[in-house]
């Protein structure tokens, strides 16, 4: 009897392995941001395999390297900010946005003694100030977008000082070379923890649900195999549900995968909720982001970006998940969110 059970188990294992080997493969690039954690949840909880896609994750140290790998077709899909894919697309690269991985996440840090001066929920507190930033980072673009929405002429009323890295911005704030600095996770948490600096504002306070890192893929690959990308997004949609409902396990998965301190991940993800891991494409947000880049004068020519956004694959993925779980509150909220933002 034992030998029959053993043979059955062996055959089952072989069948599973054979099924996994037959699944379509996707090579996915990411950067080590806590809010990119849905990839690890989908992998560790087995959602990619259950949805029928064999995903291999590749970490990159910079958005430029990630985009170069995507362009060289060493990757099938990736998340490397919003600016980087927009710059590539505006120079003729055939990439398509199919989803997102992160919403929000940018913060303005200052020294503790300047905090009172910059408090309140009015962007006018930044008039006349010197602000450090990394040019074309999400924080730079959306902060300028928020200022414009608030009717502030930032080219006249604020002095921006550009730095090469977020670490250099933190250092400039610490030294007092600038009044405040725009950085992204986990830099502001690290600045608070290690340098004694304070977060004056999260940009989300002035500009709700702005787009951060988007999921982008080579257009030819997307058009050739929409079904595989749909499965990939369906797995991320299920990972989003898990992240919304299983705090401790999600923090453990993010921490293990990103090797960033657990307290920083928990704080950013669930306590202060500075960024949201959300796979929605946010089409309207991408178009606004592009407009902010043009308004800032960073790029001289407009480009038909909308042609490079595909929201249908995400919608099909969401519909397929909703169909299996029609009464699930989170999936219904995702549906409403999709309708509002696309």
């Amino acid at each position: 009897m034992k030998s029959i059970v053993a043979v059955f188990l062996l055959l089952s294992l072989l069948a599973t392995a054979s099924l996994a080997a037959d699944l379509p493969k996707l090579r996915v690039g990411y950067i080590p941001e806590p809010a990119h954690g849905l990839y690890f949840v989908a992998r560790d909880k087995g959602y990619f395999k259950e949805e029928g896609v064999d995903v291999e994750l590749f970490q990159f140290g910079s958005a430029a390297e990630g985009m170069a790998a995507l362009k060289a077709e060493k990757l099938d899909v990736g998340t490397f900010g919003t600016t980087a894919p927009l710059l590539f697309i505006s120079k003729g690269s055939e990439f398509t946005f199919i989803g997102g991985i992160m919403i929000g996440g940018q913060a303005i840090i200052t020294r503790p003694e300047r905090l009172a001066e910059l408090s309140g929920h009015d962007l006018k507190v930044y008039k006349g100030k010197k602000i450090g930033l990394v040019k074309l980072s999400t924080g730079d673009v959306v902060f300028k977008g928020a200022l414009k929405k608030a009717g502030i002429d930032y080219k006249k009323d604020i002095t921006f000082v550009e730095f090469g890295t977020a670490a250099a911005v933190v250092e400039a704030v610490k030294k007092g070379a600038v009044d405040a600095g725009l950085v992204w996770p986990p830099h502001f948490s690290l600045a608070e923890k290690n340098q004694g600096l304070k977060v004056a504002h999260y940009i989300e306070e002035f500009y709700p649900k702005y787009t951060c890192c988007r999921i982008v893929a080579p257009t030819a690959k997307v058009n050739a195999d929409k079904e595989t990308y749909r499965r990939f997004l369906a797995a991320l949609i299920r990972a989003y549900r898990f992240y919304k409902t299983n705090e401790n396990e999600t923090v453990a998965i993010y921490t293990k995968s990103l090797k960033i301190d657990e307290d920083i991940i928990r704080n950013e993800t669930y306590v202060k909720r500075v960024a949201e891991s959300n796979p929605d494409p946010l089409r309207k947000g991408i178009l606004e982001f592009w407009q902010h880049i043009l308004d800032a004068g960073y790029i001289p020519n407009d480009y038909p970006i909308d042609k490079h956004i595909n929201i249908d694959i995400y919608k099909q993925a969401l519909d397929s998940v909703v169909k299996k779980n029609p009464k699930d509150k989170i999936y219904q909220e995702m549906l409403a969110f999709y309708k509002k933002n696309n």
Partner: peptide, 21 residues
């Protein structure tokens, strides 16, 4: 260098160091 940086359109540095800090 700052002036040249202000004119250039470069993909911004995005990534935190992938280590416990």
């Amino acid at each position: 260098y700052k002036e040249l940086s202000g004119k250039a359109v470069c993909v911004p540095d995005c990534c935190p160091k992938n280590k416990k800090q």
